[in-house]
Design a protein around this nucleic acid. Structure first.
Lengths: 130, 130
DNA sequence: GTTATTGGTATCCATGAGGTAACTAAGTTC
DNA sequence: GAACTTAGTTACCTCATGGATACCAATAAC
């Protein structure tokens, strides 16, 4: 391992990649990015798409994504206000790995639910068996 | 949208794929899976690899991964005890998308840090400018 | 009988993530 | 002048996650 060239390593708690890796795993951030895949969208539309997120939390999520360079925020001088959010090139580049992960999750739902049932049954038997 | 055939959709809060998608984003789970990529490993070794995780939290993470069918837990009848954790086929299949995401994160660390600096500078100027 | 080892568990506690609800700006409509 | 609109902000509260610490079981070595 070449520590001079700072090899990024998610397992190192001091490596920025670990922080970034976990930011991607954020409850809302990755969902927002995937909604933005269909093009620019305004705040209220986004709220509807990402079902059940409070304005406060959505704002927090969007600010963080903006700060990290994943999205841009465009305020239109209108009344009532109109604000559009759009993926940057960086944000768009995240779509590919993120989509693969989403597809994996969607594909393996049955396997995981099955594993859970089997595990829970085994637990029950262990308890009954004493 | 065909609701009878249950099209998996991460954006639907009631879809199991959303839960699973977010479990992958768990602080420790995805890290553990990536460590297990190198083959079976015992509890104490795992703790050293995933740097700074308390035994309680590691146990919780491992139990959840086991329940969801990502890993197996093998207890050897020895004293002192030896417990090995190993990826299942399901868990191993997650490695591919997860690795792509990790590589993305590691590759884009500089871009993100740069975006952050630019954003913070802009914020500072806005404050100074009044 | 004391100590060391491994893989945990039990208990308590602090942080913070996220939810609720009310409020604001600013112009348009009624 | 009251109400509606969008895109938030603010204050307040709650609950779960995760951290710190101590302890335990079982046996072998000393």
């Amino acid at each position: 391992m070449d520590t001079n060239n700072l090899p990024a390593n998610v397992l190192d708690p001091d490596c920025p990649s670990r922080v970034i890796f976990q930011r991607i795993g954020d409850k809302w951030a990755s969902l927002v990015v995937q909604v933005l895949a269909d093009g620019p969208i305004r705040f209220s539309e986004l709220r509807k798409m990402v079902h059940v997120v409070t304005p406060k939390v959505l704002t927090q999520t969007l600010r963080t994504l903006e700060r990290d360079g994943f999205i841009t925020r465009t305020v239109h001088a209108q009344v009532p206000p109109r604000v559009d959010y759009e993926l940057t090139e960086l944000g768009a580049s995240l779509l590919e790995p993120l989509t693969l992960l989403r597809l994996w999750a969607e594909d393996h739902v049955p396997s995981i639910l099955k594993a859970r049932d089997a595990y829970d049954d085994a637990q029950d038997e262990a308890v009954i068996g004493g």
